[in-house]
Amino acid sequence: MLGVDNHGQTIVLACAFLSKETTESFVWMFEEFKKVMLGGEPKTIIIDQDAVMAIAISIAFPTTFHRLCIWHITSKFSVKLPHSAYKEYWLEFQKAIWDTDNKDEFDAKWNIVVTKACLTDHPWLSSMFDLRESWVPAYT
């Protein structure tokens, strides 16, 4: 687990080797982590889209804000979208993601790009839009 110290530097907080990546294993790991952290639960945890870990976070850290890593999500656009749509619309997706100040503005820009790119029925984009509260900066 990584954290940020009082100087804004990334630091290693903990490391664990798990023989199985199960909900129970992650809950155990998080409970052990809590035992040595004097400040209580973390305020925010950012992970990739690991569903098992997300369940464990909700069990072990019920008051912690769980976010999805925006880098992991945005790096998948080039793989998940048709090549031509990615090439033509990636900059507009970036602007919608990074250059919006509020939820309504993001939703409007996202819907415009998705419609222009003829991707309104794209399953992955739809799933990312449904999860927007946990990864889009305008929502957090």
Rank of each mutant, 00 (worst) to 15 (best):
I59Y: 04
F65N: 13
F106S: 05
K87M: 03
F77V: 02
K109C: 12
Y86A: 06
N102C: 04
L119E: 08
D99N: 10
I112C: 11
S58L: 13
A96W: 11
S126K: 13
I73F: 03
K76Q: 05
H72Y: 02
K103I: 09
F106G: 05
V114E: 06
F93M: 07
H83F: 06
D99S: 08
N111Q: 13
H66A: 07
S126A: 09
A96N: 08
V114W: 09
A56G: 02
A117L: 08
A56C: 04
P62V: 05
H122E: 06
K116E: 15
R67Q: 03
S75A: 08
E92K: 11
D101Y: 09
P123Y: 06
S78A: 11
T74I: 03
V113L: 06
F93I: 06
I59R: 05
F93T: 06
L81F: 10
C69F: 04
W124T: 03
V113G: 12
R67G: 00
F77Q: 04
T74H: 05
E88K: 10
Y89Q: 07
E105V: 08
L91S: 14
P123R: 13
K80H: 10
D99H: 14
K116N: 15
I73T: 03
D104A: 07
I57T: 01
A60Y: 04
H83M: 07
D107L: 11
W110D: 07
F106Q: 07
I70P: 05
H83D: 13
C118M: 10
I57D: 03
A117V: 12
L119M: 15
T120Y: 09
H66E: 11
V113Y: 12
K80D: 04
F77S: 01
A117W: 09
V113K: 07
Y89D: 09
A85D: 11
A96S: 13
F106T: 08
D99M: 01
